[in-house]
Design a protein around this nucleic acid. Structure first.
Lengths: 343, 343
DNA sequence: GTTAGCAGTCTTTTGTTTTGAGTGCTAACA
DNA sequence: TGTTAGCACTCAAAACAAAAGACTGCTAAC
């Protein structure tokens, strides 16, 4: 569907104004704030046409226009301008990554928080561990008499996870650590998940620890809860569309149901860096919110996504800009950097 | 202020009914549901007296009675019965502690979640690390070439925290670990915070790591954010009193401001195991919520608190019971148990 | 193709009336 | 003296009615 320049300008105006005010937009509004050169009556004609095409709708006969999901989509795909972040905004985001982040959990959580703080919406960060991480090191650490910590370090320079096992002397552990590292080093995590045939005669005596390691690796991958971090749910309270508690609940509970969320964050991004799902999308009843997702890569391969969840009336231009910014930082400073710099 | 038995019974009835329905309670309600033997008129007389005494109030002339903050306090302190948990409830709570919990963060977070799930209110768990923990072990773990993880293990059988430092050979680290452990072992964390004079000639060459350790220890203690876990904010959405977004915001933002929250959770529990702050308490404008706090101990000394934050109209009997249950589990299974059992 | 003008629609606002829940008081009663 | 029935009174909530106002779609003129 191709629009005349004027229609584009008017649709843009309506969406911009909707985003700003959360109210239906009248022909007069458009004229006064966006196009003084033509009359409201002319604009009304155009609005009718745009409504005809499915981009706008009226809550009732005598109300102004509101963009439909289609309208928002058109706006996002063709009309909007990605807002450049101010120096200050960019710096704030950059600074927030200077903290020392060790575990994957920390990184995800911190990234989500950075995004939700910057956008004032909710955010979800996902990391698909199964994809590309390669084991670097298996550490066995004696905490107390019968208590051992098992740590898996991957090639991302990041500790994978931690758990607890039992008993063994310190020397024992050193030995086991060496042998197990030998077995796992260089293998991709997804590979390890399947092939339990790594269990050779040599390491059969460390079966306990072996199992713990397998458990660490598979657990994270199968438990959405552990591969996603959510932040900023409270931000939603600030938007009038969520002053209706039932809508608020719906969106918040979407953010809590990681298994429902998962396909929304990962499916068919295709080659797109950024994908936008505008509320009312047929999928799974996300009617009262929009989701903007950006994927990030390590060594050229996509390994996860960062998303913003907010009202359909979202400031897409700003959100896209922030997501691009954050995913770039993630790629450069965290996931494609062996050495994490100290302060 | 001493009440006649009948007044007690009536006040109890009004509070119970308020908790149940969130509506003003009429003399008729009380009569029908709690005391069939006397007439509404008589109850009205008693209600007037109770209002006179400050325990009840009327939203307007022709409405039923609502308990005042004083009324709730009286109820909590003298009238309510602590509800016994069902076997099923108790089991659910118990089971949730069977998971492997390694870091303090994990424990706090998990405990908070358990409480908020069990009560359906919000919860905050605080751990005053400065109090009693004693260093057991300093671990230095080489992750990558120039990247080292510093772990402080305390006598609670719990890893204190973790951070990152730079450079050194594996052998170097082993040495440093031994020497540093020697210096710190057996010392209480609060003692370490002050006495930087531990920095003897012997360990001056490990200044970097030494500083990192001090940093780990002091940071947690000074950063409320790291010594408190909050869970279940979303639960508040379910209560009609919070359908007024401004009240919801107020309470949620209280839960976000750890520095404001802190004195509420820790001050003057005195000898009491449980302290209840009913909204409208003079303190710091907690007008739209109540806070029930239980402290837990290790080796007889209080080391932290677990709290429930919810509407003033809270099911205190149940909440108190759950908090007692959880703090007991914390004490027995986590903080006073060197060996954390494996599954 | 554009625009002024205007009738028509439907929400929002404001005001009025009715209803009904629940009280406090009075007077009678045990 | 404590309890209770009865009743007048109060006030919020609900129901209804009227008025105002925001915008539109359409018509007809430019």
């Amino acid at each position: 569907m191709n629009l005349s320049e004027r229609k584009k300008k008017i649709l843009s105006a309506v969406v911009d104004e909707s985003i700003r005010t959360a109210e239906p937009v009248s022909s007069k509004d458009v004229q006064e704030k966006y196009m003084k050169e033509i009359s409201p009556a002319t604009i009304r004609n155009e609005l009718m046409a745009l409504e005809e095409m499915g981009f706008l709708s009226q809550p009732h006969t005598s109300a102004g226009r509101v963009p439909t999901a289609e309208g928002y989509k058109k706006y996002v795909e063709e009309l909007m301008t990605v807002k450049k972040l101010s120096k200050k905004e960019a710096d704030t985001i950059k600074d927030s990554f200077d903290e020392k982040l060790i575990t994957l959990d920390n990184i995800l959580q911190k990234t989500a928080k950075t995004i939700s703080d910057a956008t004032n919406y909710a955010s979800v960060v996902y990391y698909g561990i199964g994809n590309s991480a390669i084991v670097d090191n298996i550490l066995l650490i004696k905490l107390t008499q019968t208590n051992t910590l098992v740590v898996v370090v991957t090639d991302l320079g990041i500790i994978k996870q931690e758990t607890k096992a039992i008993d063994a002397t310190e020397e024992d552990l050193r030995q086991a650590s060496k042998i197990l590292t030998n077995v796992f080093k260089g293998r991709r995590l997804e590979e390890i998940q399947d092939n339990s045939n790594l269990l050779t005669a040599e390491i059969i005596r460390y079966k306990d620890i072996f199992d713990a390691i397998i458990h660490i690796i598979t657990e994270r991958d199968n438990d959405f809860d552990k591969s996603m971090a959510v932040s900023g749910k409270d931000n939603l309270l600030n938007y009038p569309e969520y002053h209706d508690i039932s809508k608020l609940k719906k969106t918040i509970s979407l953010l809590d149901k990681k298994d429902v969320l998962f396909p929304l964050l990962t499916s068919d991004n295709g080659d797109l860096e950024i994908s936008v799902r505008v509320g009312g999308d047929e999928n799974l009843g996300i009617t009262d919110c929009s989701i903007v997702t950006a994927s990030y890569k390590s060594k050229g391969k996509p390994i996860g996504t960062a998303s913003v969840v907010g009202p359909v009336r979202m400031d897409y231009g700003k959100v896209v800009s922030i997501l691009k910014n954050v995913t770039q930082l993630l790629e450069e400073n965290i996931f494609d950097k062996k050495e994490i710099k100290d302060d």
